[in-house]
Design a protein around this nucleic acid. Structure first.
Lengths: 220, 220
DNA sequence: AAATTAATTTAGATATAGCTAAAAATATAT
DNA sequence: ATATATTTTTAGCTATATCTAAATTAATTT
């Protein structure tokens, strides 16, 4: 059973909204995520239900099935591998890759993805720090915490952002923070939660608690 | 004015059938090329005419416009660059790339193509030996001749095939001929036109005139 | 428990891209 | 010049994916 591009996009949205299939999702939430109307969503849910990638009970929202989860993870895997390709090989900035990857993820060729994975050296994370599911849909997430949750003198590496709006990504770029940067917490101001952070052992950065809360790191 | 994937495919077919825009093309020919019905083609020609990429006079076939030529060449450029990527970087065989490139060519991102071109070192020919149009649609074809048109003792390099059916490509692979192979004509049999050819200064190949006529080379 | 509000579905549109069958236009043969 | 054959177009239908407006169901108040 093949899915159209539109169906794949809906399924991916449902997978994300359901936190990886752990909770059910409402028609309205899907409509908001897909930037479309609830009426269009109802139609699509019926179709996805017929194809047995979701379980659909009218008026009571949807749950993703095991088959649906597998399909969604394949699409996510393809999206993230293409993002790695664009950044590592074609010198795209990490805030420029999303739209193109959104198109590339729908190319149908298991061989292509297998070869791409190998060509990129089997990366485990995309340029935003999100984990890349393996061929079987297994994901190894690493424990991440926001910078404002780290203590003074702790060191680590930036691996992701919570807010991936273009505005925020541009700001990070400007101040010299990036995915992969090694960081150390130099100081935390009790009063407002703002922080002083050492980046790559040379640059010192001041940031508000709001900014710090949107940057995720792994400890080292 | 953007074209849909289907429109891009029709335009590409019309470009090829018209020999690069030098002659007009009939509805029936387009239908045969696109493996669809003439009725469907009529509809599409009206649409492409409205978008001014072809000039369409009912019952008298179509001519591609300058704008249409530019669009078709962009699609061809993308297709061929992706083919180079698949063969050079992802170890695809040259007879496996067509279908995937047929999908990849529709990805919309001028930046992507510019970067891909640079990443591949601005290749001038695809893995089948066909020329890759530059950003402005310029194509530099090199004079090619079929092996059966070459004389004894002439040397050259295989750059393309006329018959690119899977069967023929597989046969070439099997006997050790490939795009890029250096060749030398050792002997030609008057009686049936069959030939003896030295490949890469080591392997000797016997081939019928029919096979030789389907392999194109440049002289050196 | 009835009324109101919110969420969701259905009904009836539109646009794209295809199809078949019938009609119309062009080309060819007698 | 007329008849026949070929080519092409039109008309009307199907499927996907969207929409708006109306109807229905579920949830919340009073």
């Amino acid at each position: 059973m093949t899915l159209t591009t539109a169906e794949e996009n809906y399924l991916k949205a449902i997978y994300h909204l359901s936190d990886g299939g752990t909770k059910s999702v409402s028609t309205n939430d899907v409509a908001a995520e897909m930037k479309t109307k609830p009426a269009s969503v109802s139609d699509m849910l019926r179709k996805l239900g017929d194809k047995e990638v979701i379980e659909y009970r009218k008026y009571y929202g949807v749950n993703i099935t095991e088959e649906g989860k597998k399909r969604a993870l394949t699409t996510i895997r393809k999206h993230r591998l293409w993002e790695v390709f664009l950044v590592d090989k074609l010198q795209f900035a990490w805030d420029e890759v999303h739209e193109v990857a959104e198109e590339l993820e729908h190319i149908q060729s298991p061989l292509l993805i297998q070869r791409l994975d190998s060509y990129l050296n089997f990366p485990k994370f995309d340029p935003h720090g999100d984990p890349i599911p393996d061929e079987y849909g297994d994901v190894r997430a690493r424990p991440r915490l926001a910078l404002n949750e780290m203590d003074i003198d702790q060191s680590g590496q930036i691996v992701a952002v919570k807010d991936s709006s273009a505005a925020f990504l541009k700001y990070l770029d400007k101040v010299g923070a990036y995915i992969g940067a090694r960081i150390k917490i130099l100081d935390k101001v009790e009063f407002d939660g703002s922080m002083e952070i050492l980046v790559d052992q040379k640059k010192t950065l001041f940031m508000s608690k709001d900014v710090a809360a949107n940057i995720l790191a792994i400890q080292s």
